[in-house]
Design a protein around this nucleic acid. Structure first.
Lengths: 149, 149
DNA sequence: CTACATGCAAAGAATTTGCAAATCA
DNA sequence: TGATTTGCAAATTCTTTGCATGTAG
């Protein structure tokens, strides 16, 4: 619960090894700007790569990347966690295609102000907000799942 | 996917039986305005009621209530589905205490306009937005989980 | 009576954990 | 070498399904 900067499990301080598996996950993540699940990435890694990575490692590596702020995550409508490489610093929100994961970023300024005000007004602390928008992108509307995902 | 008013699985038309189990779930839901999970409700039903309801039925009844718009649902931060009786018609958003489920409703007018504009701009269809805010309410901050939940 | 409701056990799906074997530094 | 990382199988957690039995109307 409490933040201990520099502590043993602090996000950016822990030193990581540089392994082939980690690099592979990072590379596959880099092939698309879309949000993809651990399971999807696992399938791509298994099929497009000669290496035999385990599903467990994919989950572990993705989590580490998210902890290190290298990847950003998003919850799909069904609760699955989706990942993609972080391109810009800071917290953002997305309009995501529920079929292919294509994402259009935006910053809901008004909502952020409103929620901040609401929280203060009702005395809530440790407030986190989620503003997610899902839809079907024009490409998928005419031809569902055309490419990689 | 398509809407067929009056069809066999249409939400408000299907006739339901009036059973003791359904009434029990409805009554327990009525004891609080907080959002609670099926598992939490199951525990309450098992302990506070002489009847032996099954977890499956709790899930089924809650889903039916949600389909009939009698209950409204919310996704917890960990993906669990939370329920509570619907008090007002229409879609609302909430600032929810992640410890006790207490909810403060609000309508993010600005965000709704912004997302509508964004969707149109990028050609997305079937757009749905989720604006969820989680925090710790003042009561839980000083005395975590004091009452029923 | 008969369709709908219920319970239990099993199935599912996403994710995590235990632990021994592999490997980076 | 020595601590991390990895993989597999098993465990977890939430939720749904199959199916035989119970019950409202």
């Amino acid at each position: 619960m409490s933040a201990e900067p520099g502590g043993p499990e602090s996000a950016s301080t822990k030193r990581r090894r540089n392994t082939a598996k980690q690099r592979a996950v990072l590379e596959v993540l880099g092939t698309s700007e879309r949000f993809r699940s651990a399971q999807q990435l696992f399938v791509v890694l298994r099929s497009q790569r000669p290496m035999r990575i385990g599903l467990t490692s994919v989950y572990r590596i993705l989590r580490t990347l998210a902890d290190d702020q290298i990847a950003e995550t998003q919850r799909a409508e069904d609760g699955e966690t989706l990942y993609r490489l972080r391109t810009e610093p800071g917290h953002r929100h997305y309009l995501i295609c529920r079929l292919c994961g294509r994402a259009v970023g935006f910053i809901p300024t008004a909502i952020e102000e409103q929620t901040t005000g609401l929280s203060a007004q009702h005395g809530f602390s440790d407030v986190t907000h989620y503003v997610d928008v899902y839809g079907i992108c024009p490409q998928c509307l005419r031809a569902p799942v055309t490419d990689d995902r």
